[in-house]
Amino acid sequence: MILPVLPVLGCKPSEGHAGTRNGKDDPDAVVPDNSGGPRVALAADPGVVDSRNRVDGVKELMSRALGGAGDGEPGDFLQKLFHEDERIGIKVNTLAGRGMSTSVDVVEALVAELRAAGRGGRGIIVFDRLKQELVDVGYPSGQAARDRGYRVQGTDEAGYSRELYVAGRVGSLLSEVFLGVDALITVGVVKDHDLAGVGGCTKNLFGLIHNPNRYHDHNCDPYLADVLGLDEVKKRLRLAVADGLTAEWHGGPAYVRANTWSLGTIVASPDSLALDAVLADIIDAKRKEQGLPTLAEADRAPRWLDTAASRGLGVVDLDAIRRVEK
């Protein structure tokens, strides 16, 4: 496809890459050890989902997942990824209501780990496109949220940038909430997606731009790779976490209760693409078990994963990913 030469509006030079901190010139910069491939840690306990001690169980899973992703203590891992004086944004996914959105328990377990590691000194903001959707899923507002160590904000409250940000075929305004944070954690949901193939953590980033509906053609390829390649995203995105307590094998992004199962898993990785490649594998396995065609057979293979990987934005070869079961 031939495109006219587009001006680059509002884009600033890249200042880093996913998984790095403040670029090569920063003497404190830490690049996760990806020799041997990025780590994708899965912490599982299916009993947690309906447990009376769900909150504690989720905290335990989060701790194991972060520890596995960093190959050590979760606090050490988070301290390597984030400076203490950064404002951290947690982009959740609340499109599908209570049934199939990033759960409050998972986010609060993550916030607790960040606080315990002394990170988020300039604040932790949990955000999505619409405040109402956050409230509908159960996120607290105002003082109730601050009492729990974070703020909750919808982009509809803060608005979008006046500048267009361009990468590849994507040209979009960006969430002002997102632009106001120093570092980003994408916390998606383990679910099938009607167009992208897999919901998860990278598709969750469509919630940063004002016009995601423009970029659903061709199973979101190359658009998801383009969004991941936006300089503003690259320099902020440090960590991906997937809420797989309840997962969905078919019918996403909406919540179809009959298509869900208690996976009881939290997945974490500094590489959003590697994490999503693992999620696609999990969803495909479940689809086969259910007698459904694979994502590729259903004509929605997440080709954008390969496109993004070919641009050096992450690793999607399952043989090259260190899948750590915790």
Binding site: A96, N211, R214, H216, G251, P253
Partner: peptide, 10 residues
């Protein structure tokens, strides 16, 4: 268009 989604027009 899947449930909860919008068309290209938005």
């Amino acid at each position: 268009v899947a449930d909860r989604e919008r068309g290209t027009c938005g």
